[in-house]
Design a protein around this nucleic acid. Structure first.
Lengths: 187, 187
DNA sequence: ATTACTTTTTGATTAATATCAAAAGCAACG
DNA sequence: CGTTGCTTTTGATATTAATCAAAAAGTAAT
């Protein structure tokens, strides 16, 4: 079970913890384009992706759909600005492929943290990973050209490009769809 | 003591915890332009800013100095991609004004987390705050104009502009110094 | 295959920002 | 003061990417 394997990579798993995880993380299948979280609502669940690809996005002032990020197999995801604070978020989260996720509610998650404080390390680790990625994106958006940002994406997550529509990638890179199409055309 | 006040805002502080904090967080004065962390080294300390302004920056491939962020009174700061992983970082951290910080080493910090697991929540909270800010910057860099990003900075941290050289702000906003100067000139 | 629909590409033009170069402003120092 | 060294502003030009518009390529259902 990928979920347990991932967690075991971060903290030592006792039988008790394993039982709690099996109990509280609920496995569920989702279909392509199914909505995991809707803007304006409070995030109910933290998810773990066993299979599939999730896109987080929002609509800017002009109503344009802008991709914040993609998440895939082995990632823990949620809308962090909503789940932990229970404040409504502007972000949507949606399945880009059929897939299988495990979901846990905030109250179950908090209970696990109380029962097994070592699990805090899991949350911390997840947050740090998010933060590291965020830092890299900021750096890229600050001073790399569209071409460089695309190249980096190709190097790091080449599969994304095959799995999602071009338009959503363009907004992820901070450029228009036309520009991305031209970048791909070059060379 | 601002450090204790800040922590008390996040977790309940017992006498024991207060004693541990007073013991392990070492107060130290720094002078303007003093270096808190040098690129290529492993981050030794986590800091809390009682007074002063810290800039985190790096040199890009072209050798240009690029500001990652500014941190001020009440912030916990470190080079997160180095401190927690103990891997060398490309970031520098430097005082922009004379100031007073509290520093704690990773081993002391970890010991506190072991002795008082509730302190994990402090780490969590700090990471979440960093992450939230990072998310906002990504959003801004993705699709806001230079002018909009400057306006946002003015709204959120107007004092920064008075406390640091213009050139470092420009790179923070992802624009050149000349463009920033022109934005300020308008209206 | 045919139609309807969505996604991607191509083209022409415009707008935003970078670059290069130099001038102006400012602060510390002798 | 006047010089030196740094920061900020101004100007002219070049580049990058956005915008608007339309054509082409895919995809799915009939």
């Amino acid at each position: 079970m990928l979920l347990l394997t991932e967690i075991a990579g971060i903290i030592p798993i006792t039988n008790e913890i394993e039982a709690a995880i099996r109990d509280k993380f609920v496995k569920c299948d989702y279909m392509k384009s199914e909505c995991l979280h809707e803007a304006g609502k409070v995030a109910k669940d933290l998810y773990f992706i066993e299979k599939g690809l999730v896109r987080m996005f929002y609509h800017n002032d002009a109503g344009k759909d802008i991709t914040y990020g993609y998440y895939t197999e082995g990632d823990f995801i949620t809308v962090p600005d909503s789940f932990f604070t229970q404040v409504p978020s502007k972000y949507h989260m949606e399945m880009m492929e059929d897939g299988t996720l495990y979901a846990i509610t905030l109250s179950d998650f908090n209970q696990i943290l109380i029962d097994y404080p070592v699990m805090q390390r899991l949350e911390n680790k997840t947050l740090r990973t998010f933060l590291l990625k965020a830092g890299e994106r900021i750096t890229a958006l600050q001073f790399q050209s569209a071409q460089e940002r695309y190249d980096t994406l190709m190097d790091n997550q080449p599969s994304i490009i095959r799995r999602v529509p071009l338009g959503t990638i363009a907004s992820y890179l901070g450029i228009t769809q036309e520009t991305l199409s031209r970048i791909r055309g070059r060379k």
